[in-house]
Amino acid sequence: MNVRTLASAGTLESSDAYVEVLPSDGGVTVEVESIVKRQFGAAIEASVREVAAALDVASCEIRIHDRGALDCVIRARVETAIRRAGGDE
């Protein structure tokens, strides 16, 4: 899937994450801002990359604003944002 436009998903409410996906060149870059970054920063980034890979995204920038979301929530928000950014494929 190609990321063609800027798109977002999720909210900034507690236990949720707001995810922005932007087109870019040169691989997938992930930026994580989280209230539990010390404890889960690495785990969050790994999950985000897994979701992007599963959707065959070669290049894009993904920004996570995490409010203590569980892994399944972060994965859902990332997938939604990427699908929205990809348009109808």
Partner: peptide, 15 residues
């Protein structure tokens, strides 16, 4: 609608 069905699917999958 798209966000909710993916969220519910993930919750069913992992919780």
């Amino acid at each position: 609608k798209d966000a909710a069905r993916i969220l519910v699917r993930n919750a069913l999958r992992s919780m």
